[in-house]
Nucleic acid binder design. Structure first.
Lengths: 212, 212
DNA sequence: GCGCCGTCCGAACGGATGTTCGCGGCAACG
DNA sequence: CGTTGCCGCGAACATCCGTTCGGACGGCGC
């Protein structure tokens, strides 16, 4: 593989930094100034080299028509998951239907598509409480759920407890006629209830710790 | 909240599609042509409106100086996590050190920073096998680990089994002098071994199902 | 009608920007 | 030494592109 000259590495690094900051690519003269190059033709020359070597793609004759390629430039596809509310709080959460769920969103959580791969209708909930701490779900985390009405034993599910009027996130187990809702926190006791008192809202897929 | 005129919605949608496709913003004349508008000044007029209403940000006098703002335009910070190899295979995995770990990467996995929030030195491994299926980790998934030498009971860890010469991902439990490595798969038996035979390589943080 | 306002139109201006061309330095090589 | 290839320099050129200006159209209130 052909190597890069120092100048070319410098330009490539400048490209990354500039796009990161501005969300649009630099002009040739931006690169010239940013890299301390005395002529635009030098920039053009090296950009051609970078294109030959497959590091960038250029749309000729178009200003700022530079795209970064390769592993560090590949931009993953971003999915906006609707954030519908908070779980383990006193409010019921409507199970979204495919056509109207987005309307209830209070916000959207951008994630890479890998987080929800192969699933549609995924929605997000903010977590309150530490009842699932041993499943790496902490207070303030965001969980992604897929809407479903049924679950297998041991699944982490959001369940609507009719008698308490609230939704909670627990592992679910069916034990000779009753339901055990098991927190992933050894300091907390499981909830025992009856099948007709619970309504499964969604099944846990993954979680993140939001940055803000 | 001020609403958007049809023209403004149209332009906003065009902006998203164009950036999605090209990785750089359109020029005013690109928008003009793409939206079937007869004059650049109309585009400029509506872009000003969109800026007033907070949907975009413009760098004046700069070609293609348009940034999308708001929930659908906010681009999450992408972290490139080095993918160091495959786990549950016959090869040992070197625990990365802060200065040389990236050199061993065979690839990089782009994820939102939420996935590894607050952690540095996170690395990724491809999973082979279904031993952790009940922890939502399937064959082919990618797991993110933070390098560590110790873990608490019940943690999911990557451990190096000296006698077998392989690394595996299991839940770890210390039981009166010996180690139990528990798969999250009810059809599989735990591995019992001794503390001096295991070497913890990293602690599980999260996982994704890659798209390709 | 009259004025006001939001929106759109067409054209022109001038700066921003990609491209090209001739020239020069420099190292490698015969 | 002459040639070749790589790289850099400066200037000129032709577009590209954001901006501005005068004008027009239609809805609305007085």
């Amino acid at each position: 593989m052909t190597n890069l000259s120092p100048r070319q590495q410098q330009i490539l690094e400048f490209l990354r930094a500039f796009i990161e900051e501005h969300d649009y690519p630099p002009s040739i003269r931006d690169i010239q100034e940013g890299c301390g190059i005395s002529s635009t033709s030098v920039v053009d020359y090296n950009l051609r080299k970078l294109e030959e070597k497959g590091y960038i793609r250029r749309d000729r004759e178009i200003s700022r028509g530079i795209e970064l390629l390769g592993a560090r430039g590949r931009r993953p596809r971003i999915i906006e998951v609707p954030l519908l509310g908070t779980i383990a709080a006193g409010q019921p959460i409507p199970v979204p239907t495919s056509d109207r769920w987005a309307a209830d969103a209070e916000d959207y959580v951008p994630v890479t598509e890998d987080m929800v791969r192969g699933r549609t209708n995924v929605f997000a909930l903010r977590v309150r409480g530490k009842s699932m701490i041993e499943d790496l779900i902490d207070d303030g985390d965001i969980v992604f759920l897929e809407p479903t009405r049924h679950a297998d034993d041991g699944d982490r599910v959001a369940v609507w407890l009719k008698d308490r009027g609230e939704v909670t996130l627990k592992r679910i187990y069916r034990e000779n006629g009753r339901i055990r809702l098991q927190p992933a926190n050894s300091t907390m006791e499981p909830i025992y209830t009856t099948p007709d008192n619970v309504e499964i809202q969604g099944r846990f897929i993954s979680s993140i710790r939001p940055s803000d």
